[in-house]
């Protein structure tokens, strides 16, 4: 298995946690930080490891696959219903996202999903998840 370690400079000139994360998303990479001292994975991006407090870390590339931990459907008036979910990504972090590409009632807890990217005005790319066919 190839190393998940990212050489950030290959993708962007950004160096601080938030803009590096966004720049990588904009290049189609879902990234997370791994502490160089405690080896813990952490997300969302920040300056220090929330486990041990070290400020030395390495960016890694997620394979983009995970499991729906929980999900809720919202049905705003006169708009399409959509699913807000919490995704447990296989590398060991959880994020909020949308589960898209299938009827909302078919999204279930425990479902395997994989990432895709959607451009949002004034923000850039955001990660969304689609069902992985078994």
């Amino acid at each position: 298995m190839p190393s998940a370690v990212l050489n950030v400079a290959d993708f962007t000139d950004e160096i601080h946690p938030e803009p590096v994360y966004q720049a990588l998303l904009d290049k189609g990479v879902l990234a997370y930080q791994r502490c160089d001292v405690s080896n813990d994975v952490f997300f969302p991006p920040r300056w220090l490891c929330p486990v041990c407090g070290s400020d030395t870390y390495t960016w890694e590339r997620s394979a983009g696959e995970g499991t729906v931990y929980s999900a809720t459907t919202l049905s705003p008036r006169n708009k399409e219903p959509y699913v807000v979910g919490l995704i447990d990504v296989d590398e060991g972090f959880r994020l909020m996202s949308n589960v898209v590409g299938l009827p909302v009632e078919d999204v279930t807890i425990g479902m395997r999903v994989s990432v895709q990217f959607k451009d949002v005005e004034d923000r850039g790319a955001i990660p969304q998840f689609v069902k992985v066919d078994a």
Binding site: F43, P44, T72, V84, M96, S97, N98, V120, I126
Partner: peptide, 12 residues
């Protein structure tokens, strides 16, 4: 890192 996904806060 949550608002882009449009949860209703705090309900969702």
């Amino acid at each position: 890192y949550e608002s882009p996904f449009k949860p209703i806060n705090p309900g969702s």
